[in-house]
Write a protein that binds this DNA or RNA. Structure first.
Lengths: 340, 340
DNA sequence: CTCTGGCACTCGACTGTAGCGAGTGCCAGT
DNA sequence: ACTGGCACTCGCTACAGTCGAGTGCCAGAG
């Protein structure tokens, strides 16, 4: 298993060439395009070892070598050199995001930007409600037995729900309800609200009790239980780049997975510290995505994290470039959010 | 021109068989599977005429016939028999839509339902703002120079925008502003608001003038100019059914078109009367969709129309079934909206 | 012990040929 | 006007042969 420096260099060269050409790379081509300082025969010996260790494999007996998921993993962990963004890319990021007018706008622009820069499928999670605080609650009467509840979070998210009241409630009572819920809940984290909502019911005057009970149910449902996470998606057309070579010829499973919000959230939503996470092929827990890789990271104002974003592409992807781009976009969006 | 009844029957049989089998259909197979009462040779003569008239064509000299766009058009207009929904489908529609909790929920469920029932790509337009009336406007102070404007429309849509005020505005003034805009705008159609908004500025007290000017700009932008139409999409994975035969082997252009909201809106958004619209292949004005057909219709509470919905699939699609499904779903969603 | 050049070998990609069969167009006969 | 028959077309599949990229291995040099 002793992988000396040269073997690592060979692996790196293989990954880089394969990513660039999309064709199995042979020993001769390798020594020609990289300064390895040795002959093809030597490289072949190294390749044999790398193959034995499971870092590369041969599609057919007489073909060149192709990295395995394990090979990509080693490459990402130890071999890739950071690729600084080009000035053009930096400019693109700024130009694209400047002028965003509300949260929806920011998210949409971001996801399109990511898709465009990485030429991959991009996913952006809206700031998670669980990580937001209540900024304001509004009750708008629709009829005497119906209210529209609107919640505005500090992350800019706005959620609404229809509330069916058990009995008609006069306008004055609605005003009271509004005041009460705002007094009690504004400023608190959504994940901390359940006891507060509970108290709200107990403390309210008897004539409001009925309405408040219904309201609290809806509040809990909307804000906590049905953890209403939202996503934006862009760049699915990029899946068709590279002909049918990637994804073993069938986009079916990928497209199916992309329709499952739950799956996507799992992929990009696990906002760990501020690191960028890379999932390569098999490391992925979703069966449909065994042929894909995901690069994701958290984002948020300052050093906090309110949501995740990432891109999905073939395992054969430009990891250094993608990682750099995802990271840069996330940082920039974070700054943008911090301004609010 | 001279298309007697039998020739039409032949065309209908060709369309039905081709849609079912996805293979060019020959004269022998035709007489076997349909009671045409004549021999294959006769059918061949009819086919020759149909081909001359441009309703069918031969992929290769020695292959069977395939309908052309023109053939499908004739089929849809004059030959297809309405296909009533199966009880199972009716039940699916009800079960799927019951329990929707807000507009977002309704739209998402609808689009998934459509995709599932038709096994095609489904698109649903949110109720258009242009066809909505203002139910309530809310101003939430974020800081002394920032307001969050929330507009609630009678169609259930909720839009928000951040408003940057030129100078700090005290809370009392915000209350005044809120009262003013609500008094003036609630109940009016969004498309009719520009003069009202204008008047709003002119009539407001001097100390509110500055803030109101900014506010009115944002109002106009949000509600009228930037006709903020929203869409939901589902079922893209269905594009991969039928192998690579449909869409001449490349999903690329289709996926690209599906990412362009403007394009989709044009396709399904033109809410004509309550008829169902069918666009077949070439009839489509979007180049990328020349290999696709779109079945769309408007929907809305009662007999009004507030938005469009539809499905997109290969020209080789089950038109009668798709039309029936789209129509039924639209009607059901309309009823649902009418309840609010 | 490591690297190198040489050589036999493997096997996929491509080419050309041949046979099959579905399907057609046409024509003469009813 | 319809039908049966027949020659013809042409895509599809199978098969054989060639080519060449790339490998593994080995003996020899440094």
């Amino acid at each position: 298993m002793g992988l000396d420096d040269r073997k690592l260099a060979v692996l790196r060269a293989i990954v880089e060439d394969y990513v660039a050409t999309q064709e199995p790379v042979g020993s001769r081509a390798l020594v020609e395009r990289h300064q390895l300082g040795v002959s093809p025969a030597t490289v072949r010996n190294d390749m044999a070892v790398l193959e034995e260790e499971g870092y590369i494999r041969q599609p057919h007996t007489s073909a060149g070598r192709v990295p395995t998921d394990r090979g990509y993993r080693l490459f990402v962990d130890r071999l890739s050199r950071v690729k600084p963004l080009s000035p053009a890319e930096r400019r693109a990021i700024e130009r694209f995001l400047v002028g965003a007018v509300d949260l929806d706008d920011v998210v949409h622009r971001t996801v399109r930007l990511l898709a465009q820069l990485t030429r991959q499928v991009a996913v952006v999670q809206y700031p998670s409600l669980a990580r937001s605080s209540v900024r304001h609650l509004e009750l708008v009467p629709i009829s005497t037995t119906r209210l529209m509840l609107v919640m505005i979070a500090d992350t800019g998210r706005v959620e609404q729900r229809l509330v069916e009241l058990p009995t008609p409630v006069p306008a004055a009572d609605v005003t009271d309800l509004r005041r009460l819920v705002n007094e009690k809940l504004v400023g608190s984290r959504l994940s901390d609200t359940p006891p507060l909502v509970q108290a709200l019911v107990e403390e309210s005057a008897t004539h409001l009790r009925g309405a408040m009970t219904t309201l609290s149910t809806v509040l809990l449902e909307t804000l906590v239980e049905r953890t209403e996470e939202r996503l934006a998606l862009a760049g699915t057309a990029n899946l068709t780049r590279g002909g049918l070579l990637d994804f073993q010829g069938s986009l079916r499973p990928i497209l199916e997975a992309l329709e499952e919000e739950v799956v996507l959230l799992k992929l990009i939503g696990e906002a760990e510290p501020s690191t960028t996470r890379v999932l390569i092929g098999d490391e992925n827990e979703v069966d449909n995505l065994r042929a894909a890789s995901v690069v994701s990271t958290g984002y948020g104002p300052g050093s906090t994290i309110v949501g995740g974003m990432g891109v999905l592409g073939p395992t054969r992807m430009d990891y250094p470039g993608t990682i750099a781009t995802v990271r840069a976009v996330a940082r920039y969006v974070g700054e943008l959010l911090a301004q609010n």
